[in-house]
Amino acid sequence: MYGVTRRIARCTRARPRAGGAAPIPPLYLPYISPVSPLYLAQAEREAQAELLLAVMARGERQHAPCAAGLAALAQAREPNPNPNLDPNPNPNPTPSPEQALEPGHLGPLLEAALFADAPSGRAAAMRALALVPALKGLLYPAEGVLAARLWLLRLDADVSHP
C-alpha cells in the first residue's frame, strides 16, 4: 500500500502532459491514505474478546489467530497526530492510549487468564492482559488487584512454559 501511495504522490508532483488529466492535488492525499483507525465502543471490543476466547476454548485448531486477535484488541493505537484529517473521528475521545481495552471491560480476559482449561489459552489471555496499557503502565491505581493477579500468573508454571 505504501508503494501505491508513493506512486500517487509522485503523480501529484508530475506536470500534466498536453491534453492529459491534471494531477491529483496533494491536499487530497491524506484522504486516500491507507491509515484507517477503527473506533469501536468498548462493549464491542469486549464482545470481540469474548468471541475469540470462546473459539479458543473449543480446541487448539484456531489458537494462533485467536491469540493474535486478543493481542491486537489489547494494544493501544498511537494517537492521531492530525485529528482534523481523520476520516473516522473518535466520537468518544479518550486520553491516550486510544482504543485499547480499558478497565471495566477486561473481565473475559481475566477470567480466561485465570480459569481457561488449556495452558495455551491462559497464556494467550495473560499475554493480552500484559499488553493492556492500563495494566502495563499502572495508569489506573484502582486496577492494582488486576495487576497483582497478572504478576501472580507470571509465576504459573503452565503459563510460563506453554
Binding site: L38, V55, A68, A72, A76
Partner: peptide, 25 residues
C-alpha cells in the same frame, strides 16, 4: 462459515492498520 467469521473478526481486532515507519515521500 466459521473460518470466514473468525478471519473477519481478526481483521477487525486491530485498532488501526499497521504501517511501517517510513521517511518522507
Amino acid at each position: 462459515t466459521q473460518d470466514a467469521a473468525l478471519a473477519l473478526l481478526g481483521l477487525h481486532c486491530a485498532p488501526a492498520l499497521g504501517l511501517a515507519q517510513v521517511g518522507e515521500i
